[in-house]
Simulated assay, not measured.
Amino acid sequence: MRNQLTVSAEHLELVFEQVVSLAIDTSHLALALQAVEVDCAVSAGILNSVRMALQGNAAISEDISDQLDSMLSARQDEVSGLE
Rank of each mutant, 00 (worst) to 15 (best):
T6D: 03
T6C: 08
T6Y: 13
V7C: 03
V7N: 06
V7W: 13
S8G: 12
S8A: 13
A9Y: 12
E10F: 03
H11W: 10
L12Y: 07
L12K: 14
E13K: 08
E13Y: 07
E13N: 12
V15Q: 06
F16G: 02
F16L: 09
E17I: 07
V19Y: 08
V19G: 05
V20R: 15
V20A: 01
S21Y: 01
L22D: 09
L22C: 09
A23P: 00
D25A: 10
S27Q: 01
H28M: 08
L29Q: 00
L31Y: 02
L33T: 06
Q34M: 12
V36C: 09
V36P: 10
E37D: 14
E37L: 08
D39S: 14
D39E: 14
A41C: 10
V42T: 00
V42Y: 07
V42S: 03
S43G: 05
N48R: 15
R51S: 13
A53P: 00
L54D: 07
L54Q: 00
L54G: 07
Q55R: 04
Q55Y: 04
G56N: 09
G56H: 00
N57M: 10
A58M: 10
A58Y: 09
A59K: 14
I60F: 10
S61N: 11
D63S: 10
I64Q: 08
S65H: 03
S65R: 08
D66V: 03
L68V: 06
D69M: 11
D69P: 05
S70P: 00
S70D: 07
S70K: 09
L72C: 05
A74E: 07
A74L: 04
Q76K: 13
D77R: 12
E78N: 04
V79I: 15
V79K: 14
